[in-house]
């Protein structure tokens, strides 16, 4: 047993982190929310160059044929940087739904962004206006999806949600593993977002002074943030473990725990920042609303806990 990321996986995560740290991801998220996807699409092209979009595409279609553990390691970093776009949909789910080599090659190369709705847990297609391929999965069958022209508003303005209707005959069938991959990717994204919120809060607590002392020296804040550390540190092995076992029970445990941990991080981070964190100008809100949205997306806490109990 070796239950820790491999040196190659650490290196991959570090490369992704370096790339995204050097890009203005908050700016790209804001632009994306305003319907200007260009900066975000530039990020996607850079991610494609590092192999992110090819992770789950089979090698015979120019992909990397990577496992779920590589996927969650990448998604934790993507969540940390709040990268906009249909990440789980295009990178984790679409490769498992498509049998068509040409489309798979386009996905791998980052030339094609795909999105997908899988009602009831994923009722809307994220960023269907940007995606070149919109899919709808119903009763195990995959269809082309026809999105409405106007998005439905999400609490996270950068998540542009579209209602979709199926068109034409089934393109293929899916056994549910595509849904599991999506859930797992979102769990990892939540974990990364939670870690970012914690890091933002800790940095602010070290630097902000009140009553002549850094606010991070007060136990009320220390203990709040210590609980966030604990939740995140114990959610991470669930995400990694679910990537190893791929059982529905572990995937659901990961999503429920990562959602809770990230949500606790979001609440704590806002409280530590105070009013400045509540402003539109401060970037904290990008993660706050992302976490709130993803907590319910791809199955909320009640659904995933029920799956845990069904499998326990």
């Amino acid at each position: 047993m070796r239950f820790t990321p491999s040196p190659e996986q650490r290196q991959f995560a570090a490369s992704l982190h370096d790339l995204l740290s050097g890009a203005d991801t908050p700016g790209a998220v804001r632009a994306w929310a305003e319907g200007r996807p260009e900066p975000g699409l530039k990020l996607w092209r850079d991610l494609a160059d590092l192999g992110v979009t090819a992770l789950r595409v089979p090698e015979e279609c120019d992909g990397l044929g990577a496992g779920l553990t590589d996927l969650v390691i990448a998604f934790e970093v993507l969540g940390y940087h709040a990268v906009p776009g249909p990440l789980a949909e295009s990178v984790a789910v679409a490769p498992a739904l498509l049998g068509d080599g040409e489309r798979l090659r386009a996905l791998a190369a980052g030339r094609l962004l795909a999105t997908v709705a899988l009602p009831p847990h994923v009722p809307y297609a994220l960023d269907a206006d940007v995606a070149g391929l919109v899919l709808l999965v119903e009763n195990g069958a995959v269809y082309r999806g026809e999105p409405e022209t106007e998005p439905v508003r999400s609490v996270d303005a950068a998540r542009r949600l579209f209602r979709v209707a199926g068109t034409g005959g089934a393109l293929g069938a899916t056994d549910g593993s595509a849904f599991e991959a999506g859930v797992l990717a979102v769990a990892a994204e939540l974990l990364g977002a939670g870690q970012r919120l914690l890091d933002e809060a800790a940095a602010y607590a070290r630097q902000r002074h009140q009553y002549g002392r850094p606010i991070g020296s007060y136990q009320a804040l220390k203990h709040l943030l210590a609980d966030v550390v604990t939740r995140l540190e114990l959610a991470r092995p669930l995400v990694h473990g679910a990537a190893v076992t791929a059982t529905a029970r572990d995937v659901s445990a990961a999503k429920a725990a990562a959602g809770e941990a990230a949500y606790l991080a979001a609440r704590a981070a806002l409280q530590v920042h105070g009013a400045i964190g509540y402003t539109a100008e401060h970037h904290l809100g990008l993660w706050l609303t992302r976490v709130r949205a993803l907590t319910g997306a791809w199955g909320g806490g009640a659904y995933h806990r029920a799956r845990v109990l069904a499998g326990a």
Binding site: F3, R236, P237, L238, D250, A256, A302, R305, V308, L309
Partner: peptide, 25 residues
Amino acid sequence: AAERVADAWIGARAYQLYTYGTATR
């Protein structure tokens, strides 16, 4: 009680996996 029971199971599983990670390190 479903949520609490599930959280107990998830918590024990999390601690198991966390400890496997510690043992690896």
